[in-house]
Design a protein around this nucleic acid. Structure first.
Lengths: 241, 241
DNA sequence: CAGTGGTCTAGACCACTTA
DNA sequence: AAGTGGTCTAGACCACTGT
């Protein structure tokens, strides 16, 4: 009996989509650059413009490329807007979104513990870069954030560049050529400890929102594991369904 | 000066989409029923099949209709699957999704407080139906849930039907003709009180995840305001970005 | 088999950007 | 004016569902 999951039929536009993805993933078309025009690509692959458009539509839907009428199609980058709308879901109670300012507390290389190794799909004890930051919204400390990335993928990130930018995903893309395309977040409620008391100014035991995020590239490989603890008197996590 | 937000140009397929939406919202095409075929509709409106398909594609994207190759296009209903995947984000730590069993604790008519009135976009003091339930996952109490709906929109719901189904959105649609199409959820961390101690079996002060959900119909009108408190030792809230 | 949605084509024309 | 993406058309053929 045939237990294949892949259908016998593979629509042409899906095949085209995968080829285009490949040219982006391989770095041939770098983030921020224009890809060839629809008509050029349709000729290159010997398909109709309509079919090629359908492949591109799908890539637009996946946030892989962005189209600009009259100009062309660019490979998506991690500008501040994207970080804000795709990945940052903390808002003030009045609903206003704004990207937080970050202050780095810890930046070191150490060995991955079991949880981190599982999240990053590496072996326990492998080297990771660990960064701890406090993130402020409108001048008020709102988040205490710990994140780890594999040292193998992000070499020397523990000391270079000297100052870390606010939106790390831009750095990952520009310096290490690794683009975060998607992520899963798991939310828990936890009690504040000493670290949160010190950096967020809350009493120990105060309930905090804890967010575990695994950020992945287009192929689904884990790039970063991040744990954020958020004070929810002033802010909350917003999700639209 | 013209300060209109609506663009001067209105693509045909968007106009068609709105007309189709209207026929669904008005009840002419009820949830669960098949709408006319693509070719029939394209003839009726005097547009090409391609244009009509584009309108339908958009409705599929908005979860308003569902297409079945070889059969036809049906107006979306609230089956258990939809409740599970679009609206229910609580999962076990191992990642398994399952719909919880509900036990009703309170079912009454009372006046809306300020928070509820604001969420439902009604006046404070207007009559609402209030329901409190405990929801169990795999036999373990996981959620304590309070929800309110306007008595005006949901007449007699405080005593009819005698037993409330597990997935309320199906009831809203079938009995009251009101379809939940989208929602916003805001998440907070709070400390457990006596009610949570009694019904969830947690110590007072235990951090809990609190979820505020406003459920809306296709036109964006608020239908239900729901507050759930969730124990996060066994479960968490999962969001894919 | 007829009817449905799904794919693919070829071409016309429109709106937007840049030079 | 030339080039890009966006809309719209008309028609062919494929895949899936029911009878």
């Amino acid at each position: 009996m045939n237990t294949d999951v892949t259908p016998a039929y593979r629509p042409l536009y899906q095949q085209i989509k995968e080829v285009l993805m490949g040219r982006i993933v391989s770095g041939e078309w770098a983030p921020g650059t224009f890809i060839p025009s629809e008509s050029a690509l349709s000729q290159e692959y010997g398909v109709s413009v309509g079919t090629l458009r359908k492949a591109l539509d799908s890539l637009v839907n996946d946030h892989v490329v962005i189209r600009h009428q009259g100009k062309g199609t660019v490979v998506a980058t991690h500008d501040a807007d994207r970080s804000l709308f795709q990945f940052f879901h903390i808002v003030r109670h009045d609903g206003e979104r704004c990207l937080p300012i970050s202050r780095v507390l810890v930046r070191e290389v150490r060995e991955a513990n079991a949880t981190e190794a599982a999240a990053l799909e590496i072996k326990e004890g492998e080297q990771v870069v660990h960064i701890r930051r406090v993130r402020e919204l409108k001048g008020k400390p709102a988040l205490l954030e710990d994140l780890v990335v594999s040292s193998a993928l992000f070499p020397a990130m523990e000391y270079e560049p000297e100052t870390l930018p606010n939106t790390l995903y831009q750095l990952y893309q520009q310096r290490f050529g690794l683009s975060v395309a998607k992520a899963e977040e798991r939310l828990f409620a936890v009690a504040a400890g000493k670290a949160e008391q010190e950096h967020l100014g809350v009493m120990p035991g105060t309930p905090l929102l804890e967010i575990h995020r695994v950020a992945r590239n287009l192929q689904g490989e884990a790039l970063e594991f991040r744990v954020s603890r958020c004070e929810t008197q002033q802010h909350c996590y917003l999700n639209e369904l």
